[in-house]
Design a protein around this nucleic acid. Structure first.
Length: 205
DNA sequence: CACTGGATGCCCT
DNA sequence: GGGCATCCAGTGA
């Protein structure tokens, strides 16, 4: 059963794609990691989204490109990684908020100057650990050195938990809508309390 | 663990 | 100059 980028990103709601990305592995610059936490940003009507009211600017142009496009932007000095999920002109995407290191952990520790779960349990942290910066913004996953593996090497969540999105205050239903998805119990999820971590299975089947 | 405030790099949303 | 889909260290419990 092989899945193409087009099948994965181009024919389904962004929310469904966000859930399905949990457990997928991607690799880049000598390291690889499994996705543990995502957030859906659902386009022109979404007050929390960069594409709200179809706002276009140089910095967010990747949002309006083809499904499977990489969207990286910088804030507070951190880079944040997203994948675009709808046809050209429909500015929806998935923010990658957490990953579990799979290989190249030493390299990640050097880039982060940290060890442990802190290595990759946040959207800015994982970009630092993986060496991701603006240089791959607007690239297609089909052609990028950042390789998302939709076929092999995936893990499968025992349970997917949801919550409102992080860092989206005072936006009414867009603050509370359950558009954040994470692997329940996985320690490489942002703001995961120790008491809820499952250190035996990390939340995988 | 919950909450806080300051630092931070881009871009002008 | 201000805003931001963040990070970190410090505090108090």
């Amino acid at each position: 059963m092989s899945v193409t980028l087009d099948q994965f990103f181009n024919h389904r709601p962004t929310t469904e794609i966000s859930r399905d990305l949990l457990g997928k592995r991607f690799s880049y610059r000598g390291a690889s990691a499994w996705i543990t936490e995502t957030e859906a940003y659902v386009g022109a009507k979404d007050q929390a989204a960069h594409g709200y009211q179809n706002h276009k600017a140089k910095w967010n142009r990747a949002l309006f490109m083809a499904p499977g496009t990489i969207y990286v932007f910088t804030m507070y000095g951190s880079n944040l990684l997203n994948f675009i999920t709808q046809p050209v002109g429909n500015p929806q995407g998935v923010l990658i908020r957490g990953v579990q290191p799979a290989s190249g952990i030493k390299l990640m520790e050097q880039r982060r100057h940290k060890k442990g779960f802190n290595l990759t349990n946040g959207p800015g942290k994982l970009c630092t650990a993986m060496g991701i910066n603006l240089s791959i913004n607007t690239q297609s996953l089909a052609k990028s050195q950042l390789h998302l593996d939709l076929v092999d090497n995936a893990k499968h969540p025992e349970r997917i938990a949801t919550s409102g999105r992080i860092g989206v205050p005072h936006k009414g239903k867009w603050t509370t809508a359950p558009l954040r998805y994470y692997v329940a119990g996985n320690p490489y999820v942002s703001k995961m309390p120790k008491s809820k971590m499952n250190l035996k299975t990390y939340g995988w089947k």
